[in-house]
Nucleic acid binder design. Structure first.
Lengths: 242, 242
DNA sequence: CGCCGGTCTTATAATAGACATAAAACACAT
DNA sequence: ATGTGTTTTATGTCTATTATAAGACCGGCG
């Protein structure tokens, strides 16, 4: 097989794309096992090693999780280990504590120019806006404002949010079929205004961490825009530079 | 080869350790090429594929860089692409701009309890303390206070810092033989005090990003402790969650 | 109830050939 | 003779296949 076409990609990468299609189409759901390497090799008519290399990359990207002797599983945000991949707030002493999400409001709106640009939709398109806080050990440390595209999250309501136990991304995944893959965050320091200060129980003007996040699903499609204000008096944002 | 010993590790990982030794001993220096896969395979008496897997992991950890058709090279902080791995400050519009480091002072001191704990040395051991600022496009946006263990950086002087062109980690690497591998950062929002406000040209009380970093070399040995204050009015800290 | 093999799974190792790169060798016009 | 563009070749990594080992699980059997 010669390298002729300008759109050439190696065999294992084509297999990788086929597996991603299976994930995206819902053929294999989060938490479930995908077929074994030999079975996939047979289905796609390639060797086991080629399937293996495709799965290796998908595992490195956290889309799949390998377990020797058991199988390869679709990763899920219901897995507790996935929580702190997207919430990096830890206590002074380094202990990571579970967060409790408390939804405040959820309403329908139309996208402004900025939200439309970030979410790659048209201004005026339907969106869902929600606000919520995160509580750590009884203290309210984060207030989030979240923008979602209406076509994917049209049925989102405050009651759904209040009822659901588990992380927000776990809800996205199980109820809306939206799998969060990666995100980028822009972090800066800002002063608390009246309303956020009240919610976080700090004086107006207190320095807060402003975390603006854009979240992506398959094929780099943005599906969430959020802005969080973090109170970092007793907790901090932990980042690993590797 | 059976799995008998409790300290068993697969062949490719033993090879990986041997390569790390070569890096650590200075047998192969930053920027240089290491021997080819077949040559290493011959030297260690294993197959090329096994060497390949070892190098794959080292490349994933950014210790090596592969270039098809050319060879595999020891990664270096002199490489401009490495700069923004450890400095994630970017402009509003997303453009990344080169930083200019301006050293302010450099003096010898003795480790206090906190510095000793972080750097894993004894209280009272010799350390080097330095302060410097980072300028982006003419504006002073970062002020850093940096603590280094004296045994590694004993010959550090203000003149060395002022003379050297290039990043600090590039200096560590070329002049002190200390290769920075990874780091962890604790980020919080704080208010500017008088002195830092003066340096950054902002009013006292302005919210600043406090970035406390511990930096590690081979075998997870801490070799730098620093605290930076970032002015995030026109720039922000960019983070990728993957 | 324990344990001992089958039989699934992924993990490891070896091998062969394809592709990438750059420098040496060469042909040829000036 | 010399400069220039092309071909060859040597030497890297990359891709693909195959074989075997190790981990997990289940059911039969003592």
């Amino acid at each position: 097989m010669a390298h002729e076409s300008p759109t050439f990609s190696p065999l294992y990468r084509q297999i990788k794309d086929l597996i991603i299609q299976g994930l995206q189409s819902g053929e294999w759901r989060p938490g479930e096992a995908i077929p074994s390497e030999v079975e996939l090799a047979h289905r796609f008519n390639v060797s086991q090693g080629t399937v293996r290399k495709a799965i290796d990359e998908l595992a490195a990207e956290h889309l799949l999780v390998r377990k020797q002797g058991k199988g390869t599983f679709v990763s899920s945000h219901a897995d507790p280990r996935a929580f702190f991949r997207f919430l990096r707030l830890v206590r002074q002493d380094g202990q990571i504590e579970p967060a409790q999400s408390v939804p405040l409001e959820c309403l329908r709106a139309r996208a402004g120019v900025e939200a439309a640009r970030v979410l790659e939709i048209q201004p005026g398109d339907a969106i869902v806006v929600m606000r919520r806080v995160l509580r750590f050990g009884g203290k309210t440390l984060v207030v989030d404002e979240i923008y979602l595209p209406g076509d994917l999250f049209g049925s989102m309501t405050l009651e759904v949010l209040q009822t659901y136990q588990g992380s927000l991304y776990s809800l996205f995944e199980s109820r809306f079929g939206v799998r969060i893959i990666r995100a980028t965050e822009k972090i800066r320091a800002v002063a608390a205004d009246r309303s956020s200060g009240d919610i976080l129980a700090v004086p107006e003007g207190t320095p807060l961490l402003s975390v603006e996040r854009v979240t992506y699903t398959y094929q780099d499609r943005p599906v969430e825009w959020r802005r969080g204000l973090y109170c970092t008096n007793e907790y901090f944002y932990l980042n690993e530079l590797t």
